[in-house]
Design a protein around this nucleic acid. Structure first.
Length: 472
RNA sequence: CGGGGCGUAGCUCAGCUUGGUAGAGCGCUCGGUUCGGGACCGAGAGGUCCGCAGGUUCAAAUCCUGUCGCCCCGACCA
């Protein structure tokens, strides 16, 4: 196995190589489609569990809606269909016969969910409806990359319906906060959160909120979105209920989603020249035990199994006792695959009653007495989890500049080192000008500005403070 | 959709300029010796002949035309 190009030389090439060489994915026969291999799936599964647990804890239930959406149904919400039209894949034939109506392969499920909600909701007693689904969706993208943008991708989409706008709005913020906490606490990805501009919001939404992470090349990655759909979909799909005041009203809906794209962010932010670096929380193997055999001595193999036994219940542990590969080869292999901690056990360790631990993030090795192993492993894993986040946060802060005038604003975006934070007028026209000049757009509106503030770019009155960057 | 690159063994690629009937490394299989940062020795398998379709030629991986696909950059877009 050969080494990969340095991360700093060509991030794009490095990224692709890591995805393939760490055996997360392989390319499929169809352009823009990837196979999620068992190791990649195991990681996605762990991420999924973290989200799912939090969804359940906040009262959501999982369900599953169909892949196909009749064209007539899709067309009912004008802004929504217009937004997605260019990237919808259509089924026109089935069972050898041409269909009387084309079926869209869902690019997202607001439409089909909305239609079903209309049937299920009659009374305020039926509300709120809090449903999530784990599913695949298809968006016919032109430029694709593993995880970051694929024709078909795995994600979760939550769809809720509420009696009042306030309740819907609260739901949207609650889910955004869950996204933030999983990103930061579990994936060690520092994110900025806020509202999307008119130009950047979801097609058909009243308001979109997002978490945005910064990548090493200075581009922002939208890692999760939470939408207030207002009554747009309720009106388009006739979702009504009789309220306590006996009035018939349209419900207020929300939707929120996170895809496997967020894993692409994890790969780019934490990885290094040796390959993937996984946060312990989502590492399928948190510790890999590598025996270093000695000729004619099988005590090493026994010791490796003892180490694994000591770590039972402490860490997800894998013993790599494949006889075909040498120990050094395994070191490189598991570093490529991002395992947070390696436990080496050889004749010297056995003689000294110790285990040699090697951290993936810092590449440091320490010898630990066997009796302290469990405690030290759990300490180190926790420390890796903390320090990956801290390092990423420091990096993002280092790459974020505050612009006070047009020159520093434009220079900051053209340099493309990271986020540019500034006061902003929030006008679409201004955003389009910024995009034309710098290729960057607003990522989130982080909050309100002091009265009397002016836009760093155009000088108009600025009601808000926003973050700008080029994006994936 | 525009620009660039590439299709030859499982993988990475050489061979193409100057046509002569296909190679290397890695991987794989078997046997043995090894293992503290990508081990070594020996034996062996592997390409309906070089993405596909035409054309030129006595002869095409190599020259010409077309076509399909993949990757990267850009535009567009979650």
């Amino acid at each position: 196995m050969k080494s990969i190009p340095p991360k700093g030389a060509d991030l794009s090439d490095w990224y692709t190589q890591v995805c393939l060489r760490a055996q997360l994915v392989d390319y499929a026969p169809v352009r823009g489609c990837i196979v999620l291999r068992p190791y990649g799936f195991a990681i996605w599964d762990l991420i999924r569990e973290e989200f799912d647990r939090r969804f359940k804890a906040t009262g959501h239930q999982n369900a599953y809606f169909p892949l196909f959406i009749p064209e007539s149904l899709l067309a009912r919400e004008a802004e929504h269909v217009e937004g997605f039209a260019p990237e919808v894949a259509w089924v026109t034939e089935g069972g050898g016969e041409k269909l009387t109506e084309r079926l869209a392969i869902r690019p997202t499920s607001e439409v089909i969910v909305g239609m079903m909600y209309a049937r299920w909701i009659q009374s305020h007693r039926d509300l709120p409806v809090l449903i999530n689904q784990w599913a695949n969706v298809v968006r016919w993208e032109k430029a694709t990359r593993p995880f970051l943008r694929t024709l078909e991708f795995l994600w979760q989409e939550g769809h809720t319906a509420h009696a009042t706008q306030a309740e819907a709005s609260e739901e949207v913020q609650q889910m955004l906060e869950i996204y933030r906490s999983v990103a930061e606490d579990i994936l060690c990805l520092p994110v900025i959160t806020g509202r999307k501009s008119e130009h950047e919001k979801f097609a058909g939404a009243a308001a979109t909120f997002a978490i945005e992470a910064l990548m090493p090349d200075g581009k922002a990655l939208q890692a999760g979105t939470s939408h207030e759909l207002g009554q747009h979909f309720a009106k388009a799909y006739d979702i009504k209920f009789t309220d306590t005041d006996e009035q018939i009203k349209h419900v207020w809906t929300t939707s929120w989603g996170v895809s496997w794209r967020i894993l692409g962010g994890v790969i780019m932010v934490h990885g290094d020249d040796r390959g993937l670096v996984l946060p312990p929380a989502i590492a399928p193997h948190q510790v890999v035990v590598v025996p270093i055999p000695k000729k004619g001595d099988d005590t090493v193999a026994v010791a490796a199994r003892e180490i694994a036994a000591l770590l039972q219940g402490v860490a997800r542990t894998h013993v790599d006792d494949r006889p075909e590969q040498t120990a050094p080869w395994k070191f490189n292999e598991w570093e490529m695959r991002g395992v947070p901690l390696r436990a080496e056990i050889g004749p010297r360790d056995i003689a000294a009653g110790q285990v040699t631990l090697a951290r993936r993030d810092t590449l440091e090795k320490v010898a630990v007495p066997r009796e302290q192993l469990a405690a030290r492993v759990s300490e180190i894993l926790a420390d890796i989890q903390r320090s990956l986040y801290a390092r990423a946060l420091a990096e993002r802060e280092r790459r974020t500049v505050v612009a006070h005038d047009r020159k520093s604003f434009v220079d900051g975006l053209v340099a493309q080192t990271g986020f540019v934070e500034s006061l902003w007028c929030a006008r679409t026209e201004c955003e389009l000008d910024i995009k034309a000049e710098t290729s960057a757009v607003s990522r989130v509106i982080a909050g309100a500005a002091e009265p009397g503030s002016v836009c760093a770019y155009c000088g108009c009155p600025a009601p808000v403070r926003a973050f700008f960057a080029r994006s994936y």
